[in-house]
Amino acid sequence: MNSLTTVKGGAQRGAYPSGIPQGYGDPYAGYGQTPATVTGDRPMTVDDVVSKTGMTLGVIVLFAVVNFGISLFNPGVAMLLTMVGAIGGLITVLVATFGKKYGSAAVTLIYAVFEGFFVGGISVLFSGMLVGDANAGILIGQAVLGTVGVFLGMLFVYKTGAVKVTPKFNRIMTGALVGVLVLALGNLLLALFTGANPLRDGGMIAIIFSLVCIGLAAMSFLSDFDAADKMIRAGAPSKMAWGVALGLAVTLVWLYTEILRLLSYFRGN
């Protein structure tokens, strides 16, 4: 998401300390034309972000429901699709990041399809539906409500300025996210070679780790909102809204997964 803010037709992030382009009545006068003119695309608006994010989440929900339905009749196929979704989603994000495909609608929607399969399958697993838990649907509903609540709450926090997104804030977030990633990978290797799984076994350490992940996912929304805000103010091309949608979708899926996992601990699933 931070990389997106450098796509400004030559202007670099931080060029406008106030957050608003200088000479707003005649933007980018020093460049002779706006970024939208350079790329042949109109400037991005909030409506673009909302619509593209809505479409991305709609695709995720659609394919999540499809895989969820498949699990009721053929759990084996559903779990295979879940694995394909997890791996495919990761590869798609890597392509978007290192291939500079930030404004690609195809990449974002392909990611949404993969993550839909993943979300549907992981919901079946964590809710206990495969073992006949009658309250599995309630658990999933609680996770969805929790995810929406956190998202709206962090949007309110950002709009009110209660927490300022600064370069220092982003550096701290990056360090924390890398730390969590290293811990998760270490735990995975430990589980593979020894069978021990302290960060995901439902014990006190696992609960604390899930709470940390949920907190980081929530705070990540602030960086996402700030990046989108800077792009809109800088007049980035409207197609870049697909990149914003991808970033928000990644954070939402992570948050939902962690909330569902945490709830499953308390349900003993």
Results as ranks from 00 to 15, higher is better:
residue 1 M to V: 06
residue 2 N to Y: 05
residue 4 L to T: 13
residue 6 T to Y: 03
residue 12 Q to Y: 03
residue 14 G to V: 01
residue 15 A to E: 12
residue 15 A to P: 06
residue 19 G to C: 03
residue 23 G to S: 13
residue 29 A to P: 07
residue 33 Q to F: 05
residue 33 Q to L: 09
residue 33 Q to M: 09
residue 35 P to K: 03
residue 41 D to Y: 00
residue 45 T to M: 00
residue 51 S to M: 12
residue 52 K to P: 01
residue 55 M to K: 08
residue 60 I to K: 03
residue 60 I to R: 01
residue 60 I to V: 15
residue 60 I to L: 08
residue 69 G to H: 09
residue 72 L to V: 13
residue 72 L to E: 12
residue 73 F to C: 13
residue 76 G to P: 13
residue 80 L to W: 03
residue 82 T to Q: 09
residue 88 G to L: 08
residue 89 G to H: 09
residue 95 V to D: 04
residue 98 F to N: 12
residue 99 G to A: 08
residue 99 G to H: 10
residue 102 Y to P: 07
residue 102 Y to A: 10
residue 104 S to Q: 10
residue 109 L to V: 13
residue 110 I to R: 08
residue 117 F to N: 04
residue 127 S to F: 04
residue 132 G to S: 14
residue 138 I to S: 03
residue 141 G to Y: 00
residue 142 Q to C: 07
residue 149 G to V: 07
residue 151 F to L: 12
residue 152 L to E: 01
residue 154 M to P: 04
residue 173 M to P: 04
residue 173 M to L: 14
residue 173 M to Q: 10
residue 174 T to H: 01
residue 175 G to V: 11
residue 176 A to M: 14
residue 184 A to N: 11
residue 185 L to D: 00
residue 192 L to S: 12
residue 195 G to D: 06
residue 198 P to G: 02
residue 200 R to N: 14
residue 201 D to W: 00
residue 209 F to G: 05
residue 209 F to K: 02
residue 213 C to E: 14
residue 214 I to R: 11
residue 214 I to F: 02
residue 217 A to W: 09
residue 221 F to I: 05
residue 222 L to G: 07
residue 225 F to A: 13
residue 226 D to M: 06
residue 228 A to G: 06
residue 234 A to H: 03
residue 244 V to Y: 00
residue 245 A to Y: 01
residue 246 L to W: 04
residue 250 V to L: 15
residue 253 V to A: 02
residue 257 T to K: 11
residue 260 L to N: 05
residue 263 L to K: 07
residue 267 R to P: 00
